[in-house]
Computed example of a mutant assay.
Amino acid sequence: MKPIAFTIDYSSSKHFQEQAYFAGIPTAHRPLDSARWFWRILKLAWTEEVLLVDNETAPSSHPELFALAHIGLWPKQFRPAIVLTGDMYQQRKGFVGWLAKQLIHLADRSVTLHAIRTTKEMRLFPTLWNINADKLRHCPYYFKIDNGDLEEHESPEEDFIFAGGNTYRNYAPLVEAAKAFPEIKFVFATTLIKDAEELPQHIQAGPISHEEYMHNLRTAKVNIVAIRRRVTRAVGEQTFLKSMWLHKPTVVTDESGARDHIEDRKSGFIVDGSVEQYIEVIQWLFDEGNRKEVKAIGEAAHEAASPYTFDNHVANLLGIIDEAVQLHTTP
Rank of each mutant, 00 (worst) to 15 (best):
D287S: 12
A35Q: 10
D87W: 13
I297L: 13
A35W: 11
L192W: 02
K2S: 14
I145A: 13
F269C: 04
T239K: 13
M88L: 15
Y278E: 09
Q201E: 13
M122W: 09
N170H: 12
D195E: 15
L136Y: 11
L246D: 02
S34F: 04
L99F: 13
T7P: 08
L113W: 03
E255H: 14
S110Q: 07
E299H: 12
T57H: 11
H202S: 07
T118K: 11
R230Q: 12
A58Y: 06
M244V: 08
E176D: 12
D54N: 15
R259I: 08
E280R: 14
H328G: 01
Q90S: 10
K101L: 02
F78M: 13
L136D: 09
K292E: 15
E255D: 08
T47W: 05
K221Q: 14
N147R: 13
P140F: 08
F38A: 00
I41W: 06
Q238W: 10
N290T: 11
K292G: 00
H215W: 06
V111M: 08
A226Y: 09
S267I: 07
D260P: 11
G206E: 05
S155Q: 12
V271P: 00
A196V: 01
V53D: 05
I208M: 15
R233Y: 01
E18L: 12
V271W: 01
L106W: 13
D260G: 12
K101F: 01
A220I: 03
Q238S: 14
F16C: 09
I320Q: 02
S306L: 13
S209D: 07
D33V: 02
P156N: 11
L241S: 06
V251S: 03
G319L: 03
E255L: 02
G72T: 10
F162Y: 15
G273M: 07
I270D: 07
A205F: 06
N316P: 00
Y10R: 10
S155C: 00
I145W: 02
A220S: 15
F188I: 03
E64I: 07
F269Y: 15
E157A: 11
V251A: 04
N170P: 00
A205Q: 08
A28G: 02
F186I: 04
L68D: 08
F162S: 08
E48M: 03
A315D: 07
N223V: 15
T47A: 05
P80T: 07
D311M: 03
I227V: 15
A172P: 00
I193P: 08
A301V: 10
S306M: 12
A324W: 07
V96E: 12
E211L: 11
G206H: 05
H328M: 01
F286C: 09
S11T: 14
L217E: 12
L318R: 03
A189K: 08
I193F: 04
A20L: 06
P173M: 09
N170F: 00
E303W: 09
E299W: 10
I282F: 09
F95S: 07
Y213Q: 04
N312H: 14
A133E: 14
T329M: 12
E158P: 00
L73V: 00
K101I: 02
G24W: 02
E197L: 03
T239F: 08
I224L: 07
H328L: 02
K194T: 13
A67H: 05
E276K: 14
Y308K: 08
